[in-house]
């Protein structure tokens, strides 16, 4: 059966605001999530949903305040052995900031190749750098270049090559294409798909664009105000959302999707403040299904169909409508 590589339990992360740190912003509030080998799990949500914070916690770049994250047999939270750390890599959103502006592509890749402990010989580093560039659709001609001499798409390819240099098992891709133009977006997404197909990579894919999620992900976790609203196979959720927020998101999206969701929920209101979120279900002020119980109790994530979990007490009603 499916082999879980990353397992997050009860993850909570708070950020302190203000001079005295008296204000606490709870970016992630009690999230359980598993990542299965070879899959792409997408974290979807709007700004403030906690998707970026959760992503970073899942690959051990941030330490949760509460809860545990394990990667295979290692607990993420403290220092990791280097060869384990290498297995969890990242690609970020902003291509302009992803590469050190003072380093040539050669240096950027050489640093990663050496950090991976592959080799120290100059010739071998060069060989490996060239093969990495070829893997991401670039060539040896890019080695002498500085980041400012590359286009946005090329920068993102180099960032991917740098991650691949570590021979990772899991790659966190945080909005990897949102700063790029449409056609370049498609090029990079296609590259990510090819790399996954050929090398069996596992992706944690953070995106706000549903067509990208549709293209790349096997499972999707819809996040709202620091919590998971719904998680399950992408096709099922896009076709038949069980959480009213998912339905609202699908209705709102300008992404071109192959079909409309069964349920349309007219978008109203805005995401709540994370410093003083509404009691009960955080979505209730915007929800057409909200009842007294929603205002009082936080809904638990519960099973609703094969591989699907939803945090809504009215999910059955939502599915039927």
């Amino acid at each position: 059966m499916s082999e879980v590589v990353i397992r997050g339990r009860g993850i909570v992360k708070e950020f302190r605001l203000g001079l005295t740190g008296r204000l606490r912003l709870r970016a992630v509030d009690g999230v359980d999530l598993e990542v299965v080998k070879g899959e792409t799990v997408a974290l979807v949500g709007e700004s403030g949903s906690g998707k970026t914070t959760l992503g970073r916690i899942l690959v051990g770049l941030l330490r949760p305040d509460r809860g545990t994250v394990t990667y295979r047999e290692w607990g993420l939270g403290g220092r990791l052995p280097r060869h384990v750390r290498a297995r969890l890599q990242v690609v970020f959103q902003n291509p302009d900031a992803s590469l050190n502006p003072r380093m040539q592509v050669m240096d950027i890749l050489a640093e990663a190749i050496r950090a991976a402990g592959d080799t120290d010989s100059r010739e071998e580093v060069l060989d490996r750098a060239i093969s990495l560039l070829e893997m991401v659709g670039l060539s040896a001609d890019h080695l002498p270049k500085y980041p400012h001499e590359l286009s946005g798409g090329e920068k993102q390819r180099v960032a991917i090559a740098r991650a691949l240099a570590m021979r990772p098992e899991v790659v966190l891709a945080d909005e990897p294409v949102s700063a790029l133009d449409a056609i370049v977006r498609a090029q990079i997404l296609e590259l990510m798909y090819r790399l996954q197909r050929d090398w069996g990579l596992t992706y944690i894919f953070i995106s706000h664009d549903l067509s990208h999620v549709w293209y790349l992900s096997d499972r999707v976790a819809i996040m709202y105000a620091g919590q998971i609203a719904e998680v399950g196979p992408t096709e099922d959720i896009f076709r038949e959302p069980a959480h009213p927020y998912t339905a609202m998101l699908l209705t709102s999206s300008t992404s071109v999707l192959p079909y409309k969701p069964r349920l349309t929920v007219r978008p109203v209101g805005e995401s709540p403040s994370l410093i003083s979120p509404p009691p009960g279900c955080r979505f209730h002020p915007r929800c057409p299904y909200a009842t007294e119980q929603c205002r009082a109790e936080r809904p638990e994530l519960r099973p609703i169909g094969p591989g699907r979990l939803v945090a809504c007490i009215h999910a059955e009603k939502v599915l039927r409508s």
């Binding site: 990791l80 969890l88 890599q89 990242v90 902003n94 992803s98 640093e111 960032a159």
Partner: peptide
Amino acid sequence: EPYVEAGRAMGLSGPYILFRHILPN
């Protein structure tokens, strides 16, 4: 900066990142 965070994800040490990625910039 993302490239510093990427360095951390590669397991580069604090002083290395400080001298190689932060100080030059």
